[in-house]
Amino acid sequence: MHILITGGTGFIGQAFINTHHEDYNFTVLTRNVSNAKKTFSHISTSNIKFISQLEELPSAIHIDAVINLAGSPIMDKMWSDKHKHILESSRWEITQQLADFIATKTITPEVFISGSAIGVYGRQGSETIDETHGRHYPEYSSHLCEHWEEIARTACPNTRTAILRTGIVLGKNNGALQKMELPFRLGLGGPIGKGDQYMSWIHIDDMVAAIHYLIQHKTCSGTFNLTSPNPVTNREFSDKLAASFNNKARITTPKLLLRLLLGERADIIIYGQRVLPTRLLDSGFVFHFETLERALSAIYTDE
């Protein structure tokens, strides 16, 4: 199988390639080929090719699957109008290019896996929601993801398409935990406000396994929530993360302070969604890390 992947040097993309580099051939679309090669210098790259634009694909190449994970990190900078344009173009433009390549049969993959996020739902309080939930709260994260998904769906008439509504991805030394870990290690971590907002999370290994599952199972198409079956409140998450370092989650961060530090981005943390992966479970997928305790234990097992 030959897989074309965008966002291959990101957290999820790296994990997928590292897991399956001996199983498949990869073509990695990246803005910086030199850096991408360095990223994967620890593994054999004899079956991994790197390109900086889709036009570099050989005309006779056969692509079995496309995994589209490209997108500038959403929490790294203030959401100025300029940065919102970067967030949008980094997601929408490459997705449009891929959809166009599929529509014109420049590439004819059997499956198109395209990224999104549970931010598409917007703030939802404590209501339990799944893929059937259509009342999206109108805020920026929802707008960003809704249009991202709309573009990806234009590939549907030509190839099986699965859209990944990804939650908070947990893994060692990367993703959300990389930013959260230090204060909790020092005993300075704790909930945001009352901590009653929900956090819908997924272990990186389950994330990789779910993508692979959707590639392999030809009856799977449409939108899928990639989150654990057991979302937790921010208070519970804080308590369990602190306990991983034999600490208590004693210090509460006021919402106002978070707004001052993060601006509009703070809404993603202050408000949450209680998301369930109903369609993934109904299709037969089995999570290895169903509970937060098990996920954190695996991540920090060598502590």
Rank of each mutant, 00 (worst) to 15 (best):
E55W: 11
L262K: 13
Q14F: 12
C156D: 06
I269D: 03
L170C: 02
F184E: 03
Q14Y: 09
I129C: 14
P277F: 05
I251C: 01
F16D: 01
I204G: 05
R274K: 13
P157S: 05
V28R: 01
A65W: 10
H2D: 13
L182H: 06
V232Q: 01
N68H: 14
H83I: 10
E131Q: 09
H62L: 14
N234W: 07
D302C: 03
F285W: 09
C156R: 04
I118H: 05
V286R: 14
L296Q: 02
L98C: 06
G71S: 09
T154W: 03
H21L: 10
L258T: 06
T227E: 06
G134P: 03
L4Q: 04
G175A: 14
Q178C: 01
T278H: 08
N173R: 13
K84F: 13
E139A: 15
I269P: 02
R274W: 00
P277E: 01
Q14G: 12
Q273F: 00
P277N: 08
K77S: 14
L256V: 12
G10K: 01
S297N: 15
I113R: 09
S72E: 13
R235Q: 14
A103H: 12
T30V: 08
I74A: 13
S244F: 05
I118K: 03
T45C: 11
T45K: 04
Q197C: 05
P157R: 04
Q197V: 03
N35C: 13
N234F: 07
W201K: 02
T39N: 08
A210R: 04
E149G: 00
D81L: 15
L260I: 09
K194G: 03
R259F: 06
P191D: 00
A65D: 09
S52F: 02
A70H: 09
I113M: 10
R153A: 00
H62M: 15
Y198C: 04
L280V: 08
A117I: 14
V286P: 06
I74H: 09
V28D: 04
G272R: 00
G195E: 05
A15Q: 07
P109V: 08
G195Q: 07
I268L: 15
G10M: 06
T108I: 15
V275C: 05
G190H: 03
M78A: 14
Q124S: 15
H136I: 12
S44Q: 10
A65C: 15
M1F: 09
I270D: 11
Y24L: 11
Q124D: 12
T45W: 00
L296E: 01
V208M: 02
Q273I: 00
D100E: 15
G7A: 07
T166F: 12
N158H: 15
K105R: 14
S221W: 02
T106W: 00
L281K: 12
T223S: 10
T108Q: 13
A103F: 13
F26L: 08
K84Y: 12
F224C: 05
D206F: 05
T252I: 07
I129V: 13
T301D: 13
H20G: 07
G171V: 04
P191W: 00
P109Q: 05
R31I: 11
V111C: 11
P109S: 09
S34T: 15
K218L: 08
L170Y: 01
F224Q: 06
P183V: 03
A162C: 12
E293K: 02
L262I: 07
T6H: 10
D196H: 11
G189C: 05
I102V: 14
V232W: 00
